Simulated assay, not measured.
Amino acid sequence: MKKANILATAALATLLAACSNDSDVLNTPDYADTPIGLNVNVGPMATRAGYDNTNLTGSSFGLYLTTEGTNSDERYNCTNREVKYDNGWTIQGGQLLWKSNDATVTYYAYLPYIGTVSDAANYAFAVQTDQSSDSNVKASDFLCTGTQTATAGTALDINFKHALSKLNVTLKKGSELENGVIFTSVRLSNCATATTVNLTAGTAGTATNSGQTITLYAATPNKQYECILVPQTFAQSLKVEITDDNGKVYTFTHNKDLTFASGKQYTLNLTVGRDKVTTGTISAESWDNEQQGGDLVTE
């Protein structure tokens, strides 16, 4: 009798274990044909104007998504689909879906959105020459993600990065300069303003200087100025002009080549004297804080 009870108990345990395994299989989520969600943010940015996490929702962005083996089925793929914010980020033209749990899905995005992109590897973009206002600095900022791989069942992480370059200019008054002098504008000469961005890689190409002049944004009037630049090399031609409230122009020039790279920001520290402008160093770091640096020489 005891032997029969033991056998019955063992059989029951085996049955329960089998049911438990079946339950585990049944409880595994199946994401086939379920909607794809989005998490959207932008990486660190030290500029006072331009795009950051507080103002992304005022603009729409373009999304490219490819699901391998689906023959461009529009339920699982999109090309330059606009994404807008309306109490949450909404993919225009219909919701995109996961094909299956194990489908290979890649995607990339850029901001601000434009309706027609003829060549995603050579997207033309230009910065504003007058960046003295918040709106014009923002209009000069270009964000992209580069190509990412998605995981079914999780939201797409749209982690935007700044594709161009940024220059910060800090001004200090020399001891011989009159205390009442107020700096009213800072301009950078001999600039290129147009470039092409590879949306799939998330980087901008190095432009050729075209002799343009950019007026900088006064982040802290009389002290801190900044602008967004397309990546470019100043071949012994970087020139900063500082104007005071009396109309006097103080000029700094640099007699060495200086390259502004995609995704990096630079800080130029200047001391403005009565008759000349001098500098200590110019430092460079990625907008993810990878430090570099070097000395500048005053002409």
Rank of each mutant, 00 (worst) to 15 (best):
V240C: 13
T278I: 09
M45Y: 08
D257R: 03
L16M: 14
G205C: 03
K84L: 07
N190V: 01
I182A: 02
T203D: 15
N53P: 05
A192F: 07
T106H: 09
N168Y: 11
V181L: 02
G293T: 06
V105L: 09
N289Q: 08
K264P: 00
Q95K: 14
L143K: 04
E74K: 07
F252D: 05
C227S: 06
Y51W: 09
P112A: 06
E226R: 03
K3A: 11
V272P: 04
C191R: 10
T208C: 08
Q92H: 03
T90N: 15
T220Q: 15
Y107S: 01
T259N: 15
D157V: 07
I242D: 09
G94K: 11
L296E: 09
G58S: 11
A17K: 08
F160V: 07
L270R: 06
V137I: 06
A192E: 07
S140M: 12
T213V: 12
E290V: 00
G93C: 10
G37T: 07
S175Q: 08
S185F: 08
Q232C: 05
F160W: 13
I282Y: 15
A4M: 05
L12G: 00
P221G: 05
T14H: 02
N39T: 03
S237W: 13
T34I: 04
L171H: 07
T170D: 15
V105A: 02
K138G: 01
E299V: 05
T106P: 05
S165Q: 09
N77W: 11
Y51E: 03
D24P: 00
Q128L: 08
G280Q: 13
V186W: 01
Y31C: 03
C144Y: 05
A194I: 03
A13I: 13
V240W: 10
E299G: 10
T281L: 15
I91G: 08
T193S: 10
T243S: 08
G174D: 07
G293P: 00
Q131I: 02
T271E: 08
Q265V: 00
P112G: 03
I242W: 01
K264I: 00
T233H: 11
R274Y: 06
D288Q: 11
P112K: 05
G88L: 08
G180S: 14
C191T: 11
T200Y: 13
E226D: 15
A109F: 06
K99N: 09
L188K: 10
A18Y: 13
Q92M: 13
T203Q: 15
T251V: 12
D30T: 02
Q131S: 04
G273R: 06
N168K: 04
T200D: 14
L188Q: 14
A192T: 03
D73L: 10
N5M: 13
S60P: 00
V249H: 11
D30H: 05
N190G: 02
L96R: 14
G93Y: 12
N269H: 03
T34Y: 10
T243P: 06
Q236M: 13
D73F: 03
S189V: 01
T70Y: 12
T298F: 10
V25T: 12
L143W: 01
S237K: 12
L63N: 04
W287D: 11
V230L: 13
K256F: 06
S133G: 00
I36P: 01
G280T: 07
T298G: 02
V169N: 12
L164M: 12
